[in-house]
Computed example of a mutant assay.
Amino acid sequence: MPQLNPNPWFTIMLLTWFTFSLLIQPKLLSFIPTNNPTDKTTTTKPTPWTWPWT
C-alpha cells in the first residue's frame, strides 16, 4: 500500500506549510480591511420581563 508511505507526503506537507507561513500569509495580512470594526455600545438598558402571575 504505497499511500501509507509517509516519506514523500510528509515533505510535501512541510513545504506547503512553510510556503503558506512565510510567503502567502504575510501578503494576505498586509491587506487593509474595507470595513473597520466599530465598538458597539449599548445605550438602552433592557427591561426585565414582567410575569403575569406575579
Rank of each mutant, 00 (worst) to 15 (best):
M1V: 10
M1Y: 04
M1K: 06
M1E: 09
M1R: 06
P2A: 06
P2V: 04
Q3P: 10
Q3E: 14
Q3G: 10
Q3A: 12
L4E: 07
L4N: 12
L4R: 06
L4G: 01
N5R: 08
N5I: 12
N5V: 11
P6M: 01
P6Y: 03
N7S: 05
N7R: 10
P8L: 01
W9R: 10
W9I: 08
W9F: 15
F10Y: 05
F10Q: 06
F10N: 12
I12S: 02
I12P: 00
I12M: 06
M13V: 09
L14P: 02
L14A: 07
L14M: 07
L14S: 05
L15K: 15
L15Y: 07
L15F: 08
T16P: 00
W17C: 10
F18W: 04
F18M: 11
F18P: 00
T19I: 07
T19C: 06
F20S: 07
F20T: 12
F20Y: 15
S21M: 14
S21T: 13
S21L: 15
L22Y: 07
L23H: 00
L23I: 03
L23F: 09
L23S: 02
Q25W: 07
Q25C: 03
P26A: 02
P26F: 03
K27M: 13
K27D: 01
K27W: 12
K27G: 02
K27F: 15
L28A: 05
L28S: 05
L28I: 14
L29Q: 13
L29H: 08
L29S: 08
S30P: 00
F31I: 03
F31G: 03
F31N: 10
F31R: 06
I32A: 13
I32Q: 13
I32P: 03
I32K: 15
I32E: 14
I32N: 09
P33I: 05
P33G: 07
T34F: 12
T34W: 11
N35G: 00
P37I: 00
P37F: 00
T38H: 08
T38S: 12
D39G: 05
T41F: 13
T41N: 13
T41E: 14
T42G: 02
T42E: 13
T43I: 11
T44I: 11
T44R: 12
K45V: 15
K45D: 08
P46R: 04
P46D: 10
T47Q: 15
T47G: 02
T47A: 14
T47P: 01
P48Q: 03
P48D: 11
P48N: 09
W49L: 13
T50P: 00
T50S: 03
T50R: 06
W51V: 05
W51A: 14
P52T: 04
P52E: 11
P52D: 07
P52K: 06
P52I: 11
W53A: 07
W53R: 01
W53Q: 04
T54F: 13
